[in-house]
Write a protein that binds this DNA or RNA. Structure first.
Lengths: 148, 148
DNA sequence: TTTCGTGCAAATGGTTTGCAGACGC
DNA sequence: GCGTCTGCAAACCATTTGCACGAAA
């Protein structure tokens, strides 16, 4: 069992929840995936390991994992209402190419600074920051250039 | 006619679209609203001025306005899939209190810096940045304090 | 008089839920 | 055994769409 899955088991336990085979599969798929998965994609990958798993279980597991802070839901583009899911390793952010859909992850210390400054100024507590950049990736820029 | 509405009319024209009474009402509601509206709330406010207006028209208008860059759709909390809409005045961001739902708008020059640095580093073009902070507002922090 | 926009109602699609059985502690 | 979890199917709800009519250039 991966270190991450083990950690999640602890957290689940503390909330009176269980690490079932289905939940383990979903965690593994999330952990191994290179790309950002929506519920349907996650369901299909999970189904490959356990043909009996149901989409409802995927959603319920995602809800449970979000509740305990293990998984984050993303809205990668402003024009999409579907959710994408990933293990919450906190401090990384996303750039989405509006042309080809490619997603690039990045990080920056400036977000922590913004968070800090805003919290100090307003007397609030900031527990999460989401930053999404959108635009056109290098490959698409190049392709657009050629077409001109 | 407000300056903003007039400006929008130009942009609509350029795309072969019209500024109908319904669209004007929706723009006015968006412009005058203090809070962030979802489609349903926008529909109700618009209906107060024109009882015949339909929810479908609200959605179609929002889609049109987003297409020409006049309106932005927001996902104010990670746990909500419903969209909230506002006139796109670009450089301001949102803090949402997860306890009471209060939304605070703010701005910071650091986002422009992040955008710039990322674009330079990766050779991409960044056309939009969305930043959402979530946490607990001052009032809710205080209330929580008292309850302890 | 052609094009674009609207209202209505029905369809869509992602997500949630009720229920009865299965499983883990 | 008790309480949690699952699969299935039905329900939900925000959003979209087809269609026939209405309005604007």
């Amino acid at each position: 069992m991966s270190e991450m899955v083990e950690r999640v088991q602890q957290v689940l336990r503390r909330s009176g929840m269980r690490l079932t085979p289905q939940r383990r599969i979903i965690l593994e798929v999330l952990e191994e995936s290179e790309v950002h998965l929506d519920a349907e994609a996650l369901y299909l990958s999970a189904k490959a390991r356990d043909p009996n798993i149901s989409l409802a279980t995927v959603y319920r597991t995602l809800a449970a994992l979000r509740e305990i802070g293990v998984v984050q839901q993303r809205h990668l583009s402003q024009d999409e209402q579907r959710g994408y899911y990933e293990i919450d390793d906190q401090k990384h952010y996303h750039f989405t190419c509006l042309r080809c859909g490619k997603v690039i992850e990045f990080s920056t210390p400036l977000i922590a600074q913004i968070q800090q400054e805003f919290a100090d100024e307003m007397g609030v507590q900031v527990t999460r920051a989401r930053l999404y950049l959108e635009g056109c990736c290098a490959a698409c820029l190049e392709r657009a250039e050629k077409e001109t």
